[in-house]
Computed example of a mutant assay.
Amino acid sequence: MKFTIIAALAPLFVDAYLITGDTVNCRSGPGTSYAVKKTYTKGQDVKISCQQAGTSVDGNNIWDKTQDGCFVADRYVKTGVAGYVTEKCGVKTCAAPAVNQATVDLIAEFEGFRASVYIDATGHPTVGYGHLCTQAKCAEVKYKIPLSQADGKKLLADDIKNYEKCVTSMANSNAKLNANQYGAVVSFTFNLGCGAAQGSQMMKRLNAGENPNTVIANEFPKWVYGNGKVLPGLVRRRDAEVALAKKATSTAAIPPKC
């Protein structure tokens, strides 16, 4: 796979995200001490080109640079994750590696396909292969609902890209993952969410340089509970992810090669 230096390219704006605060200030820098350049209102869409750390707002220190060239606190932007969803501002980074087909197949199998919007076990509107909707009636989905299976796979590919970026951004230089180990972590993160993965002992151990197969085999089976009960579906998924991670491959993934 060929990787590119993101900072060498023109800013790439990712999908639009909703503003969740009533009146959100967009500032000249990533912090509350910077001058206000403009304001956004609740429900307004903004596109972001990069993110960086700044003043913590309700425990979240990420700030999003918008299409207007100013920064808003990520706390008030509905990206759907607690971590980074795009490149860090001013930092030369390689594109997040794409997961292999074995990973895509694993995620698709365990998420299952639903053409129409439904309410998942946690009470969230969902469609396709486990896409959690961010707008009423999943209005953010760019494909016609009910989804065809082909469009469902396109939506799944779009969603997986966000989790590839999330895993790549939260892994430091000590974490060394091959393509199958990386795929297992992306599947885990897709299922649990970036916030849970980022704060997990699993990620801390990987970033401490521990053996990935040991960490994955130890930590993944801990995440099989729903409402305090062991869920057989999660047990099967964690087992499949561990098996994928243990499958030998010479293809490296993390850290990405530019």
Rank of each mutant, 00 (worst) to 15 (best):
A115V: 10
S250C: 01
R114I: 00
A35G: 10
I254W: 14
A139N: 08
T168N: 14
V104K: 14
K247G: 08
E219C: 05
P97V: 02
Q181W: 05
K229N: 09
Y34D: 13
G90A: 08
G80K: 00
L147F: 06
A53N: 07
A184F: 00
Y76R: 00
D22A: 15
A217Y: 00
F13L: 14
N227I: 07
G31I: 01
Q181M: 05
T93R: 04
C166A: 15
K161S: 13
Q101I: 06
A184W: 00
N227Q: 14
V167M: 09
K165S: 14
G123S: 05
P232H: 06
G199L: 08
V215E: 01
G21H: 05
G128R: 02
V46L: 13
L12I: 14
G228F: 11
N211K: 07
T251P: 13
V99Q: 01
P256F: 05
V57S: 11
S250H: 02
T39I: 13
A175I: 00
K161A: 15
G130P: 11
G29A: 12
S169V: 00
K222E: 10
D74V: 03
T41S: 13
V186D: 11
K204N: 11
K88I: 05
V36E: 11
T4C: 08
T134N: 09
A157K: 13
A35H: 04
A108C: 02
T168H: 09
S169A: 15
P125C: 02
V186M: 08
L18H: 11
R27E: 10
K2G: 03
G54K: 01
T251N: 09
C50M: 10
L177P: 07
K222P: 09
L177E: 06
C50P: 07
L9A: 15
A217P: 04
K165R: 15
G31P: 04
Q67G: 14
V186P: 07
G128M: 04
K247A: 15
D151E: 11
G233C: 09
T168A: 10
S173D: 14
K137D: 15
A108V: 01
A208P: 11
N172G: 14
G21N: 10
L231S: 07
V242R: 02
Y84R: 13
K137V: 11
L106D: 06
H124C: 10
T189R: 08
I19E: 06
K65R: 14
Q51S: 13
C50E: 09
K222I: 12
C89R: 08
T189K: 10
G193A: 08
L155N: 05
S33M: 08
K38S: 12
A150Y: 02
G209W: 00
I107T: 01
V91I: 14
